[in-house]
């Protein structure tokens, strides 16, 4: 799982991009703490062919990416 809490954009997307490039995982979980990161990671993941499911966890968001 990628923990991108406390990071402003584009860092969460950069972290996801790195992981996707490195191992092209079929499923990946990303934890972020702001809406902007939710939108940006979702947009990037969708462009990479992932389906994205967003779960609210208290004040944070868990994004479940899957192919």
């Amino acid at each position: 799982m990628i923990d991108a809490r406390g990071l402003l954009c584009p860092m969460p997307v950069v972290m996801v991009q790195k992981e996707v490039k490195k191992s092209a995982p079929a499923a990946l979980e990303v934890l972020v703490d702001n809406r902007c990161a939710v939108d940006n990671v979702s947009r990037f993941a969708t462009n990479q062919g992932y389906a994205v499911q967003v779960e609210e966890q208290g004040a944070d968001f868990l994004l479940k990416l899957s192919k």
């Binding site: 954009c9 584009p10 997307v13 991009q17 939108d39």
Partner: peptide
């Protein structure tokens, strides 16, 4: 809209977004 003048060029270069 999260408008950002640097974000447009940055995301285009970084993610083709």
């Amino acid at each position: 809209a999260r408008l950002c003048m640097v974000g447009g060029i940055r995301d285009m270069m970084l993610f083709r977004d």
